[in-house]
Each structure stands twice: as C-alpha cells, then as structure tokens.
Amino acid sequence: MTSDLIGLNWISVAAIVGMAVVTLATRLGGFWLMGNVTITPGIERFLRHMAGGVLVAIVTAAAMNGDEAMWAGLAAAIAAMLILRKPMTAIALGMAIAVGLRQFLI
C-alpha cells in the first residue's frame, strides 16, 4: 500500500527525469542560443505556432476519442471561455456538464 502511494518505480522516475531534462533544456535554450547564434524571425514564428499547434492537437485528440459527455463538456468550456474569458470558470462548467450527463443520461 505504501509503495502504491509513493510510487517512484524506476520507469516512472526515468520518464519524469526525462521530461525534466528536456524542459530545462527549453528554459535554458533561449538564453544559451542568444549568446551563440541568432534566432531568426522564421524560427521564432515556427516555434510559436508549433506551441499552439501542440495544444490544439491534444484538444482534437480528446474530442475524437471522447464520448458525448466529453463533446458537450468541451463545447461548454470553449463557449464559456469565449464569452467570460475566465479559464477556471469555463473548465468547471464543462466538467459539471460532463459529470451530470454521465450521472443521469449515459
């Protein structure tokens, strides 16, 4: 039970350390590059749009693999965010709708 709570088997730790190392590399990368090479406007545009694209990809995958409750919840969260511009409220609304649908309808 204790080991279930704490976790930390070698493969999980390896995954977390791998994520930490590449994340550190991105944080230091901009400072390091500027001292050595120039970041062209093209590279900057590619990186900036790629960052948004990765997030769009995750939302698209969630929608394609999701059930009706996911679609309704996601649609509600997006609509609420467009209107209210409050992420927390929008996400909470989406969750509530999905939970309600799964509880009572599906």
Binding site: T26, G30, F31
Partner: peptide, 15 residues
C-alpha cells in the same frame, strides 16, 4: 514535454 515547452526558447531569447 519538449514540444509543449518549446515556447520557452523564444521566451528566454527575448529576456
């Protein structure tokens, strides 16, 4: 993790 965080490169370069 690398792709989601690639934006840091641009941010660090600006700072």
């Amino acid at each position: 993790a690398l792709l989601v965080n690639a934006r840091h490169v641009v941010m660090g370069a600006a700072l």
